[in-house]
Each structure stands twice: as C-alpha cells, then as structure tokens.
Write a protein that binds this DNA or RNA. Sequence first.
DNA 1: GGACTAAGATGATCTTAGCAC
DNA 2: GTGCTAAGATCATCTTAGTCC
Lengths: 111, 111
Amino acid sequence: MKLEKVFAERMREAREAEGLSQEALGILAGIDEATAKVRINQYENAKHAPPLSMINTIASVLKRPVTWFLCEDDVKALNLAINQLSKSKRPEALVRAISVIELDSKTQPEN
Amino acid sequence: MKLEKVFAERMREAREAEGLSQEALGILAGIDEATAKVRINQYENAKHAPPLSMINTIASVLKRPVTWFLCEDDVKALNLAINQLSKSKRPEALVRAISVIELDSKTQPEN
DNA sequence: GGACTAAGATGATCTTAGCAC
DNA sequence: GTGCTAAGATCATCTTAGTCC
C-alpha cells in the first residue's frame, strides 16, 4: 500500500480515537480556521499529502510518534510506539493496554 | 530539529554507508538520469523535501525502514529498525552489530 | 567524477465556494 | 455540525544550465 494511504488511514484512526472533528484537529495543528477542515479532510482521504513538518505537528496533537503514522503493520506500529516511549513510561502504557483488554472481556465474557 | 532536516541527515548517512553517489542513488530510486543527482542533492541538503512515496522508495534502495529516516534519536532509530525486522533476522543483525564493535576495539584497543 | 546552486517551468497543495447528511 | 468535493490561486518541487573541487 502507498505510504500516503497508510498515513491517511492512521491519521483518521488516531483523530477518531481522540474524539476530535477534522476541523478541531486542523485548528489544534495551527491551520487557519477558514481552511482547517478542508485540509484535514484532504489529508485523511489522501487527496493531498502534507509536508513532513505538518505530519510532525499532527503527530504531536494526536499524541503518537511520527513513525506510528507511517507503518502499515499494526503490530510493528505498536512496537515502534512502545520503543519510542521512555522506559519509565512503559509500565503506564502496559496498564492502559490491560485496561482495554479487561473492557473487551466484560463486553464479550464468553471469549 | 525539523523533520525535514532529520530526513536529510539520515539519508546522507545511509547513502554514504551504502557507498553510493547522489546520482547513483537517484537512478536506483527510479529518477530520470538527467535530474537524479540534482534532486538527491536537494533532498540531502534539505532544499526540498520529497513526497512520501519517494521517501518509501529511497528507504527501500538504502535498505532501511522508512521510520528510521524520521527518528532524530539514534538509539530509538536503531530500536525502530530492529523492531521492524522479522524475529528470524534479528540474530544476523546482532552479529553484524557485534562485528562493528570488534572493528572499533581493534582501532582503539585501549578503550 | 562528484557535490552543489540559481532560477524559471512545472505540478503539487491550499483556498474558496459550494453540496449532502 | 460534520464530512466531503471541484476548481482556480498559490506555492512548493523539478528541471535546466551552470560553477567549483
């Protein structure tokens, strides 16, 4: 898959996980209010691609490492993100991951 | 440091490690012979930035994961590269790393 | 051969103005 | 409010034509 498509998909995934609209993300990324929503939409649908500096800014706003947005393989992307965490923050990451697993098991208790 | 600069520096480092000229890298990346050397030079000196698809191609030619070109921290960049290797190839990567360490100790036997 | 640069040509993104739900 | 798109304006890269070592 083209890297532009990978970025677009991961961006949408991360934005929705943060509960932001396309416009809200654009404004937080420093884009002018008048054009924020259109530009983020163009990025997410891979109509256009942002420069690296904007990728960097978007990654900061969505609280994920830049590299996470450019890795097609989910497991590897998670590895990348964990390896970019300082070791002192990894226990917290583990706790959060476990909390999702518990949530999932409560929804589907048979599995 | 700006992400464009990070990419430029890592690109030069990887190209020189492969023993390629700027022109040779450009041609291997599929750029027309007439413009290959100028474009690679512009990328390496951060005069211009390539699109993500070209970053992907350059990464393939220089045999490193895309993410390695976009990580400022050397140790983290190495972690990223190792984590994107299949587990079966990690022993070979370790052997190569050790061979560099041995080379270094022969040059500076006191350290 | 190899690295680098200026400047105009070209092709991309960005902005504006809209529509659909 | 939110997501999305077309098309012209704008600005980036790409190409050409060079220099320097």
